[in-house]
Structures are given as structure tokens and as C-alpha cells.
Design a protein around this nucleic acid. Sequence first.
DNA 1: TGAACATCTGAATATCTGATCATATGTCAA
DNA 2: TTGACATATGATCAGATATTCAGATGTTCA
Lengths: 132, 132
Amino acid sequence: MTNELNRKVGQEMNKENIVDRCDITCIHEDRVKEVRERMIDEDIVRSLAELFKTLGDPTRVKLLFALMNSELCVCDLAAVIGVSESAVSHQLRVLRNQKLVKFRRDGKVLYYSLADKHVEKLFGQGLEHVME
Amino acid sequence: MTNELNRKVGQEMNKENIVDRCDITCIHEDRVKEVRERMIDEDIVRSLAELFKTLGDPTRVKLLFALMNSELCVCDLAAVIGVSESAVSHQLRVLRNQKLVKFRRDGKVLYYSLADKHVEKLFGQGLEHVME
DNA sequence: TGAACATCTGAATATCTGATCATATGTCAA
DNA sequence: TTGACATATGATCAGATATTCAGATGTTCA
């Protein structure tokens, strides 16, 4: 079932993070208990959500997609996707914080590129879902 | 490079969607032009961003993760992740709109489950990035 | 050094989003 | 049909977010 994921999450699952709310009546107590024990750790949930949220903006999607072809500097990126350089810079910081892009400096120009191959894989998976 | 993605995007790329902004000075005109021509279509960008945005919320991540183990009804889900049933219902609608979950009715109880295997793959990819 | 340039940053603003509450819908069972 | 129950929905509001503008860094080159 979710063996693949469970392997990745491993020991980090944690059932304590979810507060007991006595006012909620569930129908299948046994199943709820079991699912709750397998529940992913709160920190991982947060990281995962933040990653996806970062990918969840048209400007950033375009930035990342543009960087799949070649490394580009800030003003090039601005020209490619048609927004101000300031806006690009702001969004690049967001992408940097999530370690989705990296950059190298050449003189006064910063060349941005994808940090790793994860983005392409994520986009690939996302497109598969979107396009069917 | 991005052959894999380009195959998927196919003919749907579109360079017209991005407005020409004459006030932006780019450094590498040739490269900008090329990247721009390969640029992903605006509609696909939007769909992709919306998909990721949907995945970019802790509550929804928990809902989807919970559903990886077994199908669950609304009140079970509420109990599992510790939020109100109303909140769960609202978020399930968001997930439904993105075709990430489906449901079947059994009497007055609605059993939700994952719509397909994409979520697990996306989570797997996301976790790979987050956990390194 | 100082002007020119590429990029970054902070504040302000308009928009969006998620949780909550109250209420509505729809189903079952008596 | 009526009441009980599971779920859905609409309005509201506080908090988050993206863009813009103005100004600050930091780098190059004369």
C-alpha cells in the first residue's frame, strides 16, 4: 500500500503530535486508531506542504521551467517570463529557501540554475496528473 | 535535458502568452529567445501551480496521507488529523476539485479514497527532496 | 574613487486562503 | 413524515502572499 512511503518516513512517524479531541465522534474507531499510528510526523507534513506550496505559484513554476533549459540570470528570467526583475528576485529567494535553485556569480551577474533533478521529476509527475 | 518534460508538453507550448515588455533589458537575448520559445503554455502552468498549491497545505497533506492507508469517512478523517469535520469537508472539496480524491456513498456515510496513484508518487518525490 | 549596472531588500498594498460558525442538504430508520 | 445523523455549503475574518516601488548592496571598469 504505502510501503514505499512508509519506508521513507521510517521511524519519524509520530502519533503524539495530533491533539486528542474528545468532542469528535468517529465511526470506525479501530481504523482511525490504526491510521493515526501510521500518521506522518508533523514536521515532515510541514516541510512537504511548504515544498508544494513553493511549487504552487505560476511565477515560480515558470521560473523553474525556464531554468530547466539553461541557467539564466535574473534579468533574463524577468524577460523570459515577463515580470519585473524585483518580483523575480523575490521569488528566487523563495525558491532558494526551499533549495530548489542554486546560483553562481560571474562578475555582477548571478546565474541561477536548478538545485537538483527533483524539480523535473516533480513537474513530470504533476503534469501526468494534470494532463489526463 | 528536459526532453522528458518536453515530450509531455508537446505542441502545447506557447510563446504568445507572455507579453512583450520593452522596458526589460536582458543580457543574453539569444538565450532568452530560445527559452521563451520552449516555454510551457500558460494554461498548463496554471494547472500545475494549482495542483501543487492544493498539495501545499498541511491539513490537505495529512488528509491525503491518511487516505493512503485506507478509505475513510469524513468524521474519521476529522478524528485522525484532529480538525473539525467542517474544515475537513471544505478541504475535501478542494481535493475533489483537483481530482485527487474520490468517494463512494454507503448510506449516509461518504467514504473517501485517493483518486489515483499520482499522489503517492508526488509525495514520494517530495519526500526525497525534503529529507535529504 | 565614482559612475554604471545587476541584484537584493523592506515597506505598503491588494488579493487570496483556511478555519470557524451557522445553516442547509440529503439519507436512514422508526 | 419526523427526527437523528453525516456531510456540505456560505459568510466572515484573521493571517498569509505576490507584486510594486523606492532605495540599499555589491561588483566592474575607467
